[in-house]
Design a protein around this nucleic acid. Structure first.
Lengths: 342, 342
DNA sequence: TTGTAGGCGTTATCAT
DNA sequence: ATGATAACGCCTACAA
């Protein structure tokens, strides 16, 4: 007889001579019971060893308190930090998160979403970029996109333009002779394209010579490093005696570049300034702490949650508005000055 | 009337003139239907736009397919990689994960576990170390501990002894004059204590001079760096011309140490060898790729899942065995030779 | 191969 | 302030 069933409201009710309804009220509207009876029930709960069953509750009232999250991976600090922020929001919002890592294309991702829906998630947070926002919008639940295409759904993004503007301005203020931006060949529809655009616009506005190198590519660290090395060598020979202000697309590239400089010179020469992007751990652990643009991941996550919660609340009303126009928010990143700039 | 209810088995049944039972069978025992009727139902499903409700299914059959995970944080690569591995295991095992980040002590952690239990989780994976294993065992569900105290519950750990043995042996083989191990003052009951023990034992076995410095401490990166710098200076003055083999407790420390060397000498002198632990990203991104001991996180996660699944299956039987004696597994880490050793 | 009836544990709607 | 009863959507004997 080790198949001991759960203790249920029925058991409590029987034990206390109340009805199941009253037990339910004890949890959801305790004020409607006399203090005396509350106490009586409270007693019964732990003599019988009651444990609640939220699944039954969800089935009955339809509020799962589940949010689905789809991340491309957790290898990148950006994603794991973002996930941390969402998971930590439990303390404030009490939503639980069902997390899927999607790295095998659109079909897999759709399956995950179906699975999530079958658990009655109330909302969805998407950091992956395989499904078009049109498809995501079609699921008819609140969706927030983060740092991805989001034409048909609400989104929260870093203000990439402002970030790149800050980086570029710093290099100009520090009187670099030539400014160079190093990046992959970003798609123009991706939010991150603004970094390139802002760099260029700022350089032109201040009439500073600049160069943009979008030749970075590679799947592995080593492939990337090889490309960065080539770029480094090119820069070295092309601008030998000038003060070079290098703005790289992220801290990983920046760190590679810094290492190449350090390996060649054994120190960080005053003819270089380097600014990265992301404020990832590598930026502070580098041989010289790297100046970088810090995405405010906590703010982004908070903003996304607020947006999502608002939409989810709306959906719970008896006559919910039909999700309306997507809302797009931008979060300004902050310049973190460290040792690769003056 | 936008309060459109879900399409249920009842609707399908009505539409197809079958009973709800037959619809249920279509999903769970399709073989028991004629192909013709399967087709008929299949049609009905998508003309009516059916979406399954797994919560109802769970309530009815008791199998939630949920596993709870408690991690201390995701900031450390070790944890986020571990979480990735578990989340990715969905493809093979089809268990869903409810993840909590616990960083505010035992009380909070207990609340999380209660919450997890209320969602009828079938098993629990614990990476945090605030609750004693005795407490965890008392919840009467399958629990796997990872890299933590686990007297009363099953566990999977890195074979820290073997890892440290490999590191130490390498330094001896490379004919270092003096071996030095740098670590925090690890608690003797923690699995990681074996690293210290193995280092010492191996040095003594091979009659090699050694030193153990357990003075590392600090909450922030900067505090740690200050301590490591002190240790570095001490070593520099104490063993000026000898070949020093440094084995550090993790790659973060190793990277700090390497940076200090590089900053002082502008290069990596042949009087040093360095071995880290963890194979974290910093080890390969360092100014010189660091030789390290790689924990086989994928293997650990796989082993943990196998163990857990086995125990969960047992619990689903009509007469489950009462969880029995805890099983402890050790996974041997691997030496990853890079540029800070010969 | 298919159907009937009851149950999973909670909440919601009326009553009283 | 408290109850009776019917959902919620699915599963599982037991029957036929």
């Amino acid at each position: 007889m080790s198949k001991k069933k759960q203790v249920t409201f029925a058991d409590i009710a029987e034990y206390t001579n109340f009805s199941k309804t009253t037990i339910s009220r004890y949890f959801n509207h305790p004020d409607s019971l006399t203090l005396e009876n509350q106490e009586k029930i409270s007693q019964a709960l732990d003599t019988l060893g009651y444990k609640k069953n939220k699944l039954a509750k969800v089935l009955a009232n339809g509020k799962s308190e589940f949010i689905g999250i789809i991340v491309p991976n957790l290898y990148l600090h950006y994603y794991s930090e973002m996930l941390t922020q969402f998971l930590s929001s439990y303390r404030d919002y009490h939503y639980k998160f069902l997390v899927f890592v999607s790295e095998h294309g659109a079909e897999e991702e759709q399956q995950y979403i179906e699975e999530l829906l079958s658990y009655q998630i109330e909302g969805l947070i998407v950091l992956s970029h395989t499904l078009p926002s049109e498809k995501l919008a079609s699921y008819q639940i609140p969706v927030i996109a983060i740092e991805r295409e989001a034409e048909h759904i609400s989104s929260v993004n870093t203000d990439n333009y402002m970030g790149a503007l800050q980086a570029t301005s710093l290099l100009i203020r520090d009187k670099c002779d030539i400014l160079i931006h190093i990046n992959v060949n970003v798609n123009k529809s991706a939010p991150a394209y603004d970094r390139i655009w802002a760099f260029q616009a700022t350089c032109e506005e201040y009439h500073v010579p600049y160069d943009i190198d979008l030749s970075v590519k590679g799947a592995s660290y080593h492939e990337l490093l090889d490309v960065i090395r080539e770029i480094f060598n090119k820069i070295e020979s092309k601008y030998p005696d000038q003060k070079k202000g290098i703005f790289l697309a992220n801290d990983t590239y920046a760190n590679m570049f810094l290492n190449l400089i350090f390996q060649k010179y054994g120190t960080f020469p005053s003819t270089y300034e380097i600014v990265g992007f992301d404020n990832s751990p590598i930026a502070s652990k580098a041989i010289l702490p790297i100046t970088t643009i810090g995405q405010q991941i906590d703010v982004i996550a908070k903003t996304a949650m607020d947006l999502l919660v608002q939409q989810m609340e709306e959906q719970k009303k008896r006559v919910p508005k039909p999700l309306g126009e997507p809302i797009h928010k931008q979060i300004t990143p902050i310049l973190i000055r460290r040792n690769t700039t003056e």
